[in-house]
Structure formats: structure tokens, C-alpha cells
Design a binder for these strands. Structure first.
Lengths: 262, 262
DNA sequence: TGTACATCAGTGAACGCGCGTTCACTGATGTAC
DNA sequence: TGTACATCAGTGAACGCGCGTTCACTGATGTAC
């Protein structure tokens, strides 16, 4: 599977046109927002007729769904690449290989990050996410932006979300607990596992972590990691800091430092 | 000004129809998102013809702008009401009075919250914001959701944003500094004002605070207050926690506790 | 109180537009014998 | 190598739709003398 060599010329051409359609769609979304996505406009931009696109996508919704899938895929790859410096020298063919989850034996170099290099790992993931978001803000909002009341993301994206969560759980495992350090709260200082949230999170870690169950404290830290980065990032991307006259990266960096216990 | 009594019947009728148009618009946005807002649909829903709405709004964009203004206004009122339990027994006529900033002598009972009741104040504001957001998620996203690349909020909303910021600065003034308690990071523990962010924030507080300049530490705390609440809240509203099987309020509460230094 | 006028809410027809999508069809590319 | 057939990318016309917006007009409400 995923062997580009055995593809027939027609298949290669097909994949190429599909890719160009998606690229034009991304451009269009980046320029005018997702609601402005128009199949006819894409076709015109590519020098072909509107109905031609129906050879490649079942319709407008199908195209958008594919873009959302790609965005999730790209984010997950970015997160994984941030913790595994050089996973493979060759770039993957940008999700055209289908939604296979890829075995990818990740249990080989798992030395738990030499105890306290988990901090830098977490920071690397944080800044990688920020760079990914800044590279294409509308792609970020495709995932984390205003939800369309009727729409539900395709079922297979949850698997990709799990990949991201797995990375977050890994880099958060060795982070300062927060409860004791006061960096995260959740219960009385030093008590540790008495909070109602920790109780609610008990046993939920098994859905994403490699081992059966991540401790609720780690899960809590991962969630906080996620929500705090999203908080600063999304407000920055939406331009809510522009009139305030300070560099949003400093605020982001401060949040990352806080998460690392610095 | 703002005396409803001296309005002529025609003015009252006009205000009433305007209000109903906006209410239908809100319903429509809540149901299908802001991009689905249609003047013709609103008119049909009200039993009148499409062009009739042009007596009340210059066009679709004008209506949306008005809704955004109302959302900001409503949020600011909610925040202020959370710190001032009973400002006035009568409910204000829902922004139909125009964008006047209202003098509202707020310097009378300013006893700085009896030193440590500032914590509860901050918590009250946080939960008030959450309740406000949950009451109408799409209204929240109207302000804080995916930005439309071309669009810029009207200039007078920045004044309302300042009101919110003023409240946040007030309730954050007596919060634990974070730098020392480790709850917020930003610089080495105990050092206080050495971080690049604090340097960047120095002198910016004067834009919102009543006094000429809020200390950068307070401003930092207010920003963090804002971004963290937005982080959990927006992900909750967008449904990113629904498949995880825990109550998002617990996560929100944990963040609030962390901000209070608990 | 009554008449003449001004104001203004709302209508209905119309314009032009771009949208997603279908359908029958053409022509090129690949495949089988 | 050559012929017959199947596959499939892309076209052009057409459908129906709803959109925002304009315009001339009607009819009711308010105002001035």
C-alpha cells in the first residue's frame, strides 16, 4: 500500500488534479473564508468547466470534508514531527494515500525522554503548533473555528485527533503536576487526586495513550496544555491583540513557560 | 437622552420592528451559523416582503455589524453586572439607545473589594462569561469565532472591548501574581518584572484602566484570564469535548481555580 | 374640526448574479485480442 | 503491429434556486394651518 510507483499514469494524473483542486480550495478559504468556497470558482481558476470537478469530488461538502481531514492529518504530523526529530527522510504524499492509520512502530525509541527533556519536548510541540497555525490561519479555524450548527466532522477524524492527544499525553507525562506547584490548580496544594475533574478523568486516558490508562493528572495537564495554547493562539489569529500593541508571541511564550513550570 | 417616554408612536413602532428583525436574525444565526443569515428569509419569517427590511437596515452587512455590536454590548454588561451586583433595577432597552458609553459613576463604591474578595469577584466574572456564552454559543462565536478575512469590526466596538478589559483589570488587580506563586509564569520565580512580556506591556494599561496605567503584571494577569477562559470555553462550545466523556464545566472550574491561585 | 400636505412603511416586479448539480455527449487514453 | 472495445476526463447546456438590492408605486399615519 501507499506505493506511488505502481500507479498507472491515469491514476497519477487523477491524483495530481485532485491535489490541485484542493490547493485552489485552500487558497480560496485562506483568502475569503470557508463559507466562500465555490466549486465553480475553483473550476474557473483551473481553466476548466464547473461540472468537471464532479469527477474528483462528490460535491462541495465532500471537498470541505476532505480539507478538514487533511488539516487534522497535517496537524497530527506536525505534532509527531516535533517530538520525533527525523521520523523518515521522505515526505508523505499529503494524505492522498487514504485515511489509513499507519502502523509506524513508535515504541522503539521510547526512553521516556531522559526524564527532564520532556519539558523541551512539550515546548517544541507548542511552538510547532503555533507555527503550523500561523502558516495558514484559516486551516486552523477549519478545525478549531466557529462550528457550523448542522455539520459534524467525519468519523475517521477522531482517530487523527487521538494521534494528537497521544503526543500531548506523552509530552505532558513528565511535566510539573501543577497541583503541587500551583501552576495548574484543580485541588488543594499537595492533595493531588481529590478534585472532581480528576475523578471524572480517571480511566479516560486509555482511549489515546499507548498504555492502557494515563493517570488523570497527566490527562488534565494535556487538556490544559491544549486549551491554553488554543486560547492565546485563536485570539491572536483572529486579530484580537492587533490593536493592543504587543507581540502575541510573548504572551504565547509566557503561557508555554507557565505550563513547563518555569 | 435614552428616555423612552418622549418617543413618538412611529419611533416606538420602528424600534419594535428593528428589534424583531434582529431577534429573527439571532435565531437564524443560532440555528445555521452567521454565514446563513439571509434578509429575504428573515422578511419571509416576519410575514413581510424582502425589500421592506431596507427601511431598517442599510443592508445585510449593516445588520450583521449591528448584531456584533449588540453581542459586545451584552458581554460588557454581563461582565459589569457580575462585579456590581445591582447596578440599576430596570433592564436597559437592549442597545436600541445607541452606542453611548454611559457615564455611570463607578468610582463611588471603589473600596478595592476588601482586599481578598477580589478572588470571588474574578470567579464571578468568569462564570458569568461562561453562562453568557452557553446561553447563545453562536453569539459568542460572532465575536470570538473564525474571522472573515476581509471583515473588520466597526470602530465603536473597541470602546466596548475596553469596558470588558476594564472589568478584567479590576478583578485581576488583587489576584495572586503568578510569577511568584508559579501559577502564571512569565519570569523567574520572585523576580517579578524581568520578562520581555512585562516589558512590552508596560504603559499599555492606561488604555483601559481608570487610573492612568495598570501595572504590567496586572495587565498580564488580565490577558491570561481572558485567553484561558476563552481556550476552554470555545473548545467546549465547538463540541471538542463531547466525545471525551467528562463535564467541560469541571475543566473550566479547574482553570478558574488555577487563576485564583487555589 | 377639517382639509391639504408631508412623511414613511411596505409591496411587487424586476435585475443580475452565482451557486450546486444533472445530463447527454465528445474525444482522448488505455486495454484486450 | 493493428484493430475493436472499454474507460474515463472534460464540455456545454440547462435546471432551479435563493440571494442582495433597486425602483416606482400604494396606502396608511402623522402634521400644519
Amino acid at each position: 500500500m501507499a506505493d506511488t510507483g505502481t500507479k498507472t499514469p491515469r491514476e497519477r494524473y487523477r491524483a495530481q488534479v485532485r491535489a490541485e483542486i484542493k490547493e485552489r480550495a485552500r487558497e480560496q478559504i485562506a483568502t475569503a473564508g470557508a463559507s466562500a468556497l465555490s466549486l465553480n470558482a475553483i473550476a474557473k481558476q483551473m481553466g476548466m468547466s464547473g461540472p468537471a470537478l464532479y469527477r474528483y469530488f462528490a460535491g462541495r461538502d465532500d471537498l470541505i470534508t476532505e480539507l478538514i481531514r487533511d488539516a487534522y492529518r497535517s496537524l497530527a504530523d506536525t505534532c509527531r514531527a516535533a517530538v520525533e526529530p527525523e521520523p523518515e527522510p521522505e515526505t508523505r504524499p499529503e494524505s492522498e494515500t487514504g485515511p489509513e492509520s499507519e502502523p509506524e512502530t513508535k515504541t522503539e525509541t521510547e526512553t521516556e525522554g531522559t526524564a527532564d527533556s520532556a519539558g523541551p519536548d512539550a515546548a517544541a510541540v507548542a511552538y510547532a503548533i503555533r507555527a503550523w497555525a500561523l502558516a495558514d490561519p484559516q486551516r486552523y479555524f477549519l478545525i478549531y473555528g466557529t462550528p457550523v450548527p448542522g455539520y459534524h466532522a467525519p468519523a475517521d477524524t477522531t482517530a487523527i485527533v487521538s494521534e494528537v492527544m497521544t503526543v500531548l499525553l506523552r509530552v505532558c507525562a513528565n511535566l510539573p503536576a501543577g497541583d503541587e506547584a500551583g501552576a495548574m490548580g484543580g485541588s488543594a496544594a499537595g492533595a493531588g487526586t481529590g478534585s472532581p475533574l480528576d475523578a471524572a478523568l480517571t480511566g479516560l486516558g486509555g482511549r489515546w495513550a499507548d498504555d492502557a490508562s494515563a493517570p488523570p493528572g497527566t490527562l488534565h495537564r494535556a487538556l490544559v496544555f491544549w486549551t491554553r495554547l488554543h486560547g492565546t493562539l485563536s485570539l491572536e489569529l483572529a486579530g484580537h491583540f492587533t490593536e493592543m500593541g504587543f507581540d502575541p508571541e510573548l504572551l504565547f511564550a509566557a503561557e508555554v513557560d507557565a505550563l513547563l513550570g518555569r
